[in-house]
Amino acid sequence: MKTTTKALLIVGALALAACTNPDRFGGDGGALDPNAGANTGVVAGSANDPSSAAYFQQAVGDRVLFAVDQSSLTAQGQATLDGQAAWLTTNADYTAVIEGHADEQGTREYNIGLGNKRADAARSYLISKGVPANRLQIVSYGKERPIEVCSEEACYAKNRRAVTVLAAGLTG
């Protein structure tokens, strides 16, 4: 019998390259814009000025709500959008991004698809009321930006929304 220590070790060199890459995103990871997609911030202008974004948000109403897993507009939603269409027609310098959102009761990627359908439903309605298509973009945040944080229908109902967010000035 050969000695047990002989030739029993198979040498396997591991290419364990030292990490030459510093952790450039260490620390607190940079500042977050806490309002991106959440629309909880105060928008420009005074609500007393009917051509201001603040007036649009508060007096006209910047959002419409949806039933669970639905993207069809309610009668109340259509009424809000009628107001938005009229305001956007009068205030022709504004463009808008319509944000579609979902509540947390769904998987992430499906909810992006669902938020997209909601935003597009609002956009299509505004276009049908005469707002030029090139002034309206859509984006879906899925379930990433709830405005209400409880896990109950009272919160979910407010999170299933399409919000028309104004930007001053026509692009291009």
Binding site: L8, L9, I10, V11, G12, A13, L14, L16, A17, A18, C19
Partner: peptide, 10 residues
Amino acid sequence: GLQFQGTTAG
């Protein structure tokens, strides 16, 4: 038996 070689970091 097996033998591996690497760095202290790894």
